[in-house]
Design a protein around this nucleic acid. Structure first.
Lengths: 194, 194
DNA sequence: GTCTATACAAAGATAGAC
DNA sequence: GTCTATCTTTGTATAGAC
């Protein structure tokens, strides 16, 4: 809801570049070109590349968290609805030829990141797994999901599979890498299933 | 089985650096330091960074493929044995504080890689999924595995979950990110399961 | 096969004018 | 808030001696 001011334009450009090329391969020059300004103008908004990187991941994490909290708060949404909503961003990224989840991209180069970014990254992973765990638990209690293992472990399983699938989709160029995994997740959770 | 000659020392150093920091953040200087030589000596063995990167991924892929083919060829190995053998390298990497699968790391920065590396990457993903599919099919036919979906789709699901879990393990520092996923895979495949 | 020396480009960052 | 100009470091790569 923030206005498309310069600061957010820079964050948008940086996020897209990380999602496509990764953090190490992203430069101020690339961002400046995308936004239509010069390199030093970026430094005015973010004192260093590390500070910019941290801001990008934090914004991404918080935006995502707000959406998931909204799903939790909506009594009209079933656990199956929640699952499909959660699939949404993955499908959106997979709709492009070159994007993956910001944090999926960053996870591959974690040791090259400043500690602040690593911290944000860990919070993202843990937050998503905890949210999924809640959905799975609710679904199992209501008899809408059949779980082969504890909700927390199933949540890890599904989350890791989705992140991996998005990376596999881009690496192979095959959209089914993602949609197949989503199908299988549905089949695995369906109570009447095999 | 090749002798630890200079060429392989360079490949080893490059592979470890990619597994920890990623391709973009790896430099000839880092490799030279690890091997104990100077930068230009690397260029003598590999004419460019791209050529070195391609050689690293190809060697990794072929070495892995040979191991998996060996498992297939061994009549004493049950499908459950095969699965545990497949888990081995993931557990080895997760035993270090900073390593992930070479191709899991590269997948995050795919668009920053030369096309030859991207091609090798795709072959790696497809090869592993096809191998897993074979194991799952055999296991299902023998009544040793219970599959919630088609073998090819289940193979994708499990492979992506393992790659994602290794990335999650390093990002959070929590070894259970990987071991939980392996547990859940076993639980999901067990015929008597829930 | 390895070295010193160097070329050349691009990176992150700073100073100071406007 | 954005710019020009510049600094410093680091990157890949090349030339040529040993």
């Amino acid at each position: 809801m923030t206005a498309p001011d310069r600061r957010n334009q820079i964050l948008d450009a940086a996020q897209e570049l990380i999602q496509t090329r990764g953090y190490s391969a992203m430069s101020f020059q690339d961002i400046a070109l995308k936004v239509g300004i010069r390199k030093p103008s970026i430094v005015h908004h973010f004192p260093s590349k590390n500070a910019l990187g941290e801001a990008v991941v934090r914004r991404y994490r918080e935006t995502f968290a707000a959406v998931l909290a909204g799903v939790d708060a909506d009594p009209d949404k079933t656990v199956w609805d929640a699952l499909e909503i959660y699939f949404g961003p993955y499908l959106d990224f997979a709709g492009t030829p070159d994007k993956v989840c910001l944090c999926g991209a960053l996870a591959g180069e974690a040791m090259a990141l400043p500690v602040e970014m690593r911290h944000e990254l860990a919070l993202f992973f843990e937050g998503h797994e905890r949210w999924l765990e809640g959905i799975l638990r609710r679904g199992a209690d209501a008899g809408l999901f059949r779980l082969a293992d504890r909700p927390d472990k199933m949540a890890r399983f599904l989350f890791c599979a989705l992140q991996g699938a998005l990376l596999a989709k881009r690496a192979t160029g095959d959209l089914q890498q993602l949609t197949d995994v989503m199908d299988t997740i549905r089949a695995t959770l369906r109570p009447g299933g095999a």
